[in-house]
Design a protein around this nucleic acid. Structure first.
Length: 480
RNA sequence: CGGGGUGUGGCGCAAUUGGCUAGCGCGCAUCGUUUGGGACGAUGAGGUUGUGAGUUCAAGUCUCACCACCCCGACCA
């Protein structure tokens, strides 16, 4: 379909992804820069999407009995230092409070970069018996990581997330939890965000500081860079030992609990916004869109009948479970209002003027394709439901095709470098699993290991970089 | 944190070799006429030029520091 106008006020996604990304987030009123370095304000439109994520994820967690709770923002530095690898990993990006109420603190307080330590200090107090297990707790909160270079949603100094923390009797049970959480994240991305993901295990150098193993899901962005979309960690007994979280097992013996932690942050929204969308603005998948249908009265002589007809349409849709907004502003004029809602990515626009009011019909325009159809009032609800499902499906399919097209098996380092210099994307290559080699590849090509896909089979061959023996094909990409 | 760039009403821009009351378009407000893809008229509000010092009779314009943003790098699961 023709796009009759170019968005005058919006930079083009087709020309410069990062300019477009920043521009569209500000202009669609998802977020704004805050008067604090590296921080942003999530505005109501953006926050309503985050609330959707919370609703979805709370539903998923409930299936396994995970409960929400809240732990303090401050963590005594001494507590954080109990797990050596953990504090080392996080120390470069900590914000630390050294003064409180004008007095210098004896034990400085860390503004949490993640809450393992403070939560596990409590677990040690609460867990005594196998009957106390599993302990399945989640919190929705903010964390602070002092990043040098920030980017709206994708990397901000303070961000919102959920962090799930579980303790189990056995490693097997913990491992099941790790994979369950990972699959929940996959569902959020694939079923709601319409973003296909890959998932697997992180290399030693990329894993969470203090974890035994980290699993992650990764999404591919339009510029061929990969976004670490969510992570799930098998903590083993790495924390339960220093934090002394022990219990009497079913045989009456003392043991330390097996733990997991997992999180998805507001970064995920950045991926959502960046992946979909075009030169005209955002395109929100219907299942995550705060507004699925915007009804746009077009005023002529008989305003009252148009407005009242729009109200009737809204009622039918709302009763059908569809999220609707009526834009009955008189200003600005129609074209401008159309454009506003396009930038905001609302999946469907209902145009209702004198014609529709008289005919008892509605003209429906799709945000993703620009196509318009006319529906009668009687078929409206069912057809709208169908359209929303179709749009959701087509957005996913489009992303899936992009993912497939940009995933390459490579067997020569020359070929590897060439792809990284052009289209980027995912590269599946044999790697010796030596961290030195991994670092060299990153330095030379910007590609780092993203993960070892869970379904990857053994394969004998030579490392793409050093030629030493390799047994698995790892997934490489430039990371966001 | 290093290299480069930018900074003038909300946005985009202008302002001669340092010189007079810092202009213009869009947007915004009020009223009226309008409304099927970015309406029109009238009236009006809004800046002391990112911040702070300095040089000068005189600074948007020159100097220094700082800040913010953008690009590149380092860093960052």
């Amino acid at each position: 379909m023709k796009q009759p106008f170019e968005k005058r006020e919006l930079k083009k996604k087709s020309e410069n992804l990062s300019d477009w990304y920043t521009d569209v987030i500000l202009k669609s009123e998802l977020a704004d820069y805050a008067p604090v370095k590296g921080c942003m304000v999530i505005r109501p439109y953006g926050f309503s999407i985050w609330e959707k994520v919370q609703e979805i994820f709370n539903g998923l967690m409930k299936t396994k009995g995970v409960q929400n709770a809240y732990f303090p923002l401050f963590i005594p530095l001494s507590l954080l230092e109990k797990e050596k690898e953990h504090v080392q990993g996080f120390s470069p990006e900590l914000a630390i409070v050294t003064i409180g109420g004008r007095e210098k603190l004896k034990d400085p307080l860390v503004v949490r970069p993640t809450s393992e330590t403070i939560i596990y200090a409590m677990y040690a107090k609460w867990i005594h018996s196998w009957r106390d297990l599993p302990m399945l707790i989640n919190q929705w909160n903010n964390v602070v990581r002092w990043e040098k270079r920030t980017y709206l949603f994708l990397r901000t100094t303070e961000f919102l997330w959920q962090e799930g923390h579980t303790a189990h009797e056995t490693e097997k049970e913990a491992m099941e939890m790790v994979l369950t959480a990972l699959d929940w994240y996959r569902q959020v991305y694939e079923d709601y965000f319409a973003l296909p993901v890959v998932y697997g295990i992180k290399s030693q150098s990329e894993k969470f500081a203090g974890a035994k193993a980290t699993y992650a899901i990764e999404a591919l962005m339009p510029d061929g860079k990969a976004l670490q979309a969510a992570t799930s960690h098998n903590l083993g007994q790495n924390f339960s030992k220093p934090f002394d979280i022990h219990f009497q097992n079913r045989e009456g013996k003392e043991d330390f609990v097996w733990q997991t932690s997992w999180g998805i942050s507001t970064r995920s929204l950045g991926g959502l916004f960046m992946a979909h969308g075009d030169d005209n603005g955002l395109i929100l998948p219907p299942k995550i869109a705060p507004i699925q249908v915007v009804i746009m009265p077009i005023f002529q002589k008989d305003r009252e009948s148009v407005i009242s007809y729009c109200g009737q349409l809204k009622e039918v849709l709302t009763n059908g479970g569809i999220r609707v907004h009526i834009d009955n502003r008189e200003e600005p004029s129609v074209g401008r209002r159309f454009n506003e809602w396009e930038i905001k990515g609302v999946p469907l626009r209902f145009e209702v003027g004198q014609r529709e009011t008289t005919d008892r019909s509605v003209t429906v325009a799709r945000r993703d394709t620009g196509q318009k159809v006319t529906l009668t009032r009687d078929q409206m609800l069912i057809e709208t439901e169908k359209l929303l499902v179709t749009i959701q499906g087509q957005l996913f399919t489009k992303q899936k095709e992009f993912l497939t097209k940009n995933t390459h098996d490579v067997d020569s380092y020359e070929g590897f470098k060439k792809i990284m210099e052009t289209s980027r994307g995912y590269l599946r290559a044999l790697w010796c699993e030596d961290a030195v080699c991994e670092a060299a590849i990153k330095k030379e090509t910007k590609a780092s290991t993203r993960c070892l896909l869970l379904e990857t089979k053994n394969e004998q061959g030579a490392c793409i970089h050093c030629g030493k023996a390799a047994t698995h094909r790892w997934l490489f990409a430039q990371a966001y």
